[in-house]
Design a protein around this nucleic acid. Structure first.
Lengths: 339, 339
DNA sequence: CTGTCTTATGTAAACCTTTCCCCTCAGTTC
DNA sequence: GAACTGAGGGGAAAGGTTTACATAAGACAG
């Protein structure tokens, strides 16, 4: 593959001049510029990104660590980041972290080996200290879906407690009094916070949520089915199901329907995330919208800005709040119709 | 960040020796090896991937070009590739091509700038010639979901004609005689081939498929709804819907249900791809399983193997065939029950 | 015509690794 | 004891680019 030197030789100029042309630098005569460009074209020249990164100590790439590409939630996340990367002409280095300590660590490490100075990281398995250390090393290290106070201005996160409250409040406003919760068995921040929000809100109405009314399972459709089966088997009476996410909600709903329990007439269900699935299950899922794509682009922009050395307004924080999306899986028990 | 030179100085050895330790090379005494390793540990040394790629002309990374991260089909594809990358200790460089000529071109170009010598490319917008040229330049250039004869041994693809035939054959076997097709409006190979397979199979039973029975729209749920709405508006009678993919099938199904048409009793629907959604929607979708994850890992393995200089058996080709997955969206009109 | 600016261009060092080739030294072999 | 062997280790070039610094040529004022 042609190098800058080949171009210089053919065009009869020095390496420096070619480099200036490539980078649209100043101090090059128009005639020379054109000639060099023409030669580059002819030889199919492509700058060597590695050499460039080596000498400039900048990588023109954005590292991304997410849990799991398969999950539509992360796919949306990746999509948002990709949009920014494309706009800013930056290559994405992607790794899945699987919410496992070793894997997440290795993913970040590899990114570091590439001297990637902007990264958007979704980490649930690593502890605060480790992440703060990485942040100290990498100027454009941005955390998504997690808040750590020490590096708060580099965290783009969702208020899950408020989310939990909103879910519960909506059900309460629709006249529901008997609740069960279908939660994730992975005890990372998210389910814990959402649950605490739920509890907080229910407490305001003097409703208690005994442990037996909460079932933990894998945060996917199958997990939702299993959790709901267990709840049913336990003979608990309820009219409202609060699910950890849309997948679990959908699974729970499927299982109820298989047991001839009508949704929402007999039992109402609310999800969380508002992924595509929410619109396409039947009945359509009432859920909380997680503005993940917006957050992803924000995180990517932020990472790239920090990497460039820009200092975004340090007073703003990047906390987002989920919003209620009313569809057809929740019924108003006062009025007797779904809302 | 510490460099090899720092390690050498502290450990009191030469650069060459440190390099040998890093690469587990020979010619290093046990004592020295240990000492160097210890120093590397202490200094938190991380090899510079860029410098390494520059000097070795190998990049230890795998380029991936896919259409669109949001699409669960591509998410699965990416997931399969990621598994291989992780196993082989290779970093993924990911770009979305959006099925647009310029974008796909640019994505590949960027990969090339990184001197990525293994890439898995999903391209629908670029012509054969362009791709063959790239393949000539990049040893590990592998095409997924596309077949080009000149580089047939570097294509991992699905037999879409056979897929179309299977869809039609299944519906015929269930006693269906009145067909409509919901296809993609993007006239790339896939919908054309699937449609031709359908036609071929129907012809065997002397059933014709007039143009008015085919509706083209975007290959997503909304497109499925729109297409079905148009078909209904046209007043066409049918009992079998053959959809371009699961998303369209699901959209079409939703619309039918909204019009009080029962699936599968009144109308049977078959999808294509067998993505997660097929299991989530109600009734569960009978569909063709596209072994995309298996194909993705195959493609990634192949790309990496070619990049290493290995020459896989040139006599084998990587053609896959979709298989029928029977769920609940198709009814047997002979027996009167869903199969 | 000399001196001073500008503008266009060239030279060479630096970025960090890998690897080829050379050197040294201790132990073997005859 | 000379010649050889092999292991452990070092020196230096190479890989492609950017950029600080140097240089050359022309423009222009005085």
């Amino acid at each position: 593959m042609a190098t800058i030197k080949d171009i210089a030789d053919v065009a009869g100029v020095s390496l420096a001049t070619v480099s200036r042309v490539i980078n649209n630098g100043p101090k090059v005569g128009d005639a020379t510029r054109e000639r060099v460009k023409k030669v580059m074209e002819e030889l199919g020249y492509r700058p060597n990104a590695n050499a460039r990164a080596l000498v400039t100590r900048k990588s023109a790439s954005l590292g991304v660590v997410i849990a799991e590409l398969l999950d539509p939630f992360f796919a949306t996340l990746a999509h948002g980041i990709d949009a920014v990367a494309r706009r800013q002409n930056v290559q994405i280095l992607m790794s899945a972290g699987s919410i496992e300590k070793q894997t997440e660590l290795k993913a970040i490490d590899t990114l570091l080996q590439h001297r990637c100075e902007a990264m958007v990281v979704h980490s649930k398995a690593l502890d605060d200290k480790t992440l703060v250390e990485f942040a100290a090393q990498v100027p454009g290290f941005v955390l998504i879906n997690r808040y750590i106070e020490d590096i708060g201005h580099r965290c783009v996160w969702l208020d899950n407690v408020a989310g939990g409250q909103t879910m519960a409040r909506h059900m309460l406003s629709q006249g529901h009094k008997k609740f069960v919760v279908v939660s994730s068995k992975y005890q990372i921040d998210d389910p814990i916070q959402r649950l605490s929000g739920i509890r907080k809100e229910l407490a305001l109405s003097d409703i208690e949520l005994p442990e037996s009314h909460i079932e933990f399972s894998t945060p996917d459709q199958e997990g939702g089915e299993i959790a709901m089966r267990n709840l049913l088997a336990r003979g608990i009476e309820f009219t409202a199901v609060l699910a950890y996410n849309d997948a679990m909600a959908s699974g729970a709903m499927t299982l109820l329907q298989d047991h001839d329990v009508n949704v929402p007439t007999d039992v109402s269900i609310i999800g969380y995330d508002d992924v595509l699935l929410a619109k396409y299950c039947r009945p359509k899922l009432t859920t909380l919208h997680y503005p993940v794509e917006m957050m992803a682009t924000k995180a990517a922009d932020l990472a790239l800005a920090y990497a460039r050395g820009d200092v975004p307004d340090p007073s703003v924080t990047y906390k987002y709040t989920p919003t209620l999306v009313k569809r057809d899986s929740v019924m108003n028990r006062h009025a007797g119709q779904s809302t």
